[in-house]
Nucleic acid binder design. Structure first.
Length: 425
RNA sequence: GGAGAGGUGGCAGAGCGGUCGAAUGCGGCGGUCUUGAAAACCGCUUUGCCCGCAAGGGCAACGGGGGUUCGAAUCCCUCCCUCUCCGCCA
């Protein structure tokens, strides 16, 4: 959620930056301005009445103490209408605050200046590309066929247990999954991220604070008996760890990493996007989260990108880095890089990481602050990135490394799998 | 799931319905003293919103919500949470 203070102090900048989104920036900001103005004038009126009320109560207290009963009673006479006025203003203030808040919830974060213009994924900028695109011979198989052949995972088994989109990993496939998780966690630890194993269910307050609620409710599984939500990403519990905190300047930066399964309903998806592991309802992901001072958040973003590139290079996967255009960015982000790996049999790029700087958009809802040089609390910047999302990495690894002898495991991963080659069962 | 206890400032812990945003202790910050440090002593030390260039001022907040009252941290209702014991259990 954007800060009204920012909108008031930088109206032109906000309008310009928001203009890169597929939204009517002028209308959204004008309405925000109007509602904010209304809220403040109501607040002023209420404050004045309450000050009056307080003064009167104090007077009556003093009269009572002095034993001037009659005068005290007389002073009470006026209080009825004051009370009524206050009640009315309170209702008006609640309504004004709610209207403003609801409206602010519909305004996406303002993109940074370097975010490219554009409305669709084709407008994203390719920042860099790394690694040769492998040419597989004829007979190359997509990962879902390889999975069957080598007994690595089964979506059919998942259907029996749960429903579509819940893979069951078996044998070397299960081992590969576990190896990747350990590998990613170890690399993050080396980079200074402290590991966290959070709950997989969160309450509505948490889901709200990181922005999954109210707008993306349909993305999450909801355990209604206890009113808890299955996390769609570790970002939710890990970022919420710091909800409401005021961190000391010496506590920054905060660097956390967490492995969790992620649960997504993915309502409305269909077609080639959902074949095999391309899009599933449950997948494993290692997520890195950072809390930074504003002046350092963009440098932190680049550090995260370098970290993720290192992972992809260690896995010997061809990849490219995109800078998302204004129209394709997530609602809460100020700037996002996507990392995509080449899936050689499908001959397409698969998104395996999204690395974003949210600036104060999330921390405003989280009320996550740090104490600045001036000893006062300021909203911190939050960032996160996948490092990495497992299912699609597995898909690319299987496809790109298939050979007549079996599926080759990248060297860096072999200490974790314990085998250099996936062979037929 | 059953029974009981409790939710106050960073922590601990007070608080007759009337200047209580809140005693006191600890912690933290600044200062005096000291060659330095410790100790001792003195002062400061919550957050949000609003008005203001600032100085400063106003309003709100003692788990959440509602009620009683001229006035509530203090009384009533309700919800939530935590802890202890019992049951069940990886």
């Amino acid at each position: 959620m954007l800060e009204t203070a920012y909108l008031r102090s930088h109206p032109e900048e906000a309008r310009k930056r928001l203009g890169k989104r597929n939204v009517d920036a002028d209308a959204l900001l004008a309405e925000a301005d109007r509602l904010d103005e209304q809220r403040r004038s109501t607040q002023n009126a209420l404050d004045a009445k309450q000050a009056e009320m307080n003064a009167q109560a104090r007077t009556i207290g003093e009269l009572m103490k002095a034993g001037k009963k009659a005068e005290a009673e007389a002073a009470k006479a006026h209080s009825g209408e004051l009370k009524e006025a206050i009640a009315g203003l309170k209702d008006a203030l609640d309504a004004a605050e709610k209207a403003l808040h609801d409206h602010l919830c519909t305004i996406p974060n303002v993109p940074q200046d370097r975010v490219p213009e554009g409305k669709i994924p084709d407008d994203n900028a390719v920042v860099m590309q790394h690694g040769a695109i492998p040419e597989l011979g004829t007979g190359a198989k997509p990962h879902w066929e390889l999975a069957e052949e080598y007994g690595l995972f089964s979506l059919e088994m998942g259907v029996k247990l749960t429903g579509a989109g819940f893979p069951v990993y078996t044998g070397q496939g299960a081992k590969l999954e576990r190896a990747l998780i350990s590998f990613f966690l170890d690399r993050a630890a080396e980079a200074g991220y402290i590991e966290v194993i959070p709950p997989l269910l969160v309450n509505a307050d948490s889901a709200y604070a990181t922005g999954q609620l109210p707008d993306k409710e349909s993305q999450m599984y909801h355990a209604t008996a206890d009113d808890l939500y299955l996390i769609p990403t570790a970002e939710v519990p890990i970022t919420n760890l710091f909800r409401g905190d005021i961190l000391g300047a010496d506590q920054l930066p905060v660097k956390r990493v967490g492995y969790t399964p992620c649960f997504r309903r993915e309502a409305g998806s269909y077609g080639k996007d959902v074949r095999g592991l391309n899009r599933v309802h449950q997948f494993d992901k290692v997520e890195i989260v950072r809390i930074e001072k504003p002046e350092h958040s963009n440098a932190a973003l680049e550090e995260m990108v370098v970290h993720v590139r290192g992972l992809l290079e260690a896995l010997e996967l061809p990849y490219r880095q995109l800078l998302l255009c204004g129209g394709d960015m997530g609602f809460t982000s100020a700037i996002t890089y996507d990392m995509e790996v080449w899936s050689a049999a499908q001959k397409r790029w698969l998104e395996v990481s999204s690395i974003s700087n949210f600036e104060t958009f999330q921390s405003n809802r989280l009320k996550l602050r740090y104490r600045g040089e001036d000893k006062k609390p300021h909203l911190a910047h939050t960032l996160n990135g996948s490092a990495l999302a497992l299912a699609r990495i597995v898909a690319a690894l299987l496809e790109n490394n298939q050979t007549p002898e079996g599926i080759r495991i990248p060297k860096a991963l072999q200490p974790y799998t314990g085998f250099p080659l996936i062979v037929k069962k």
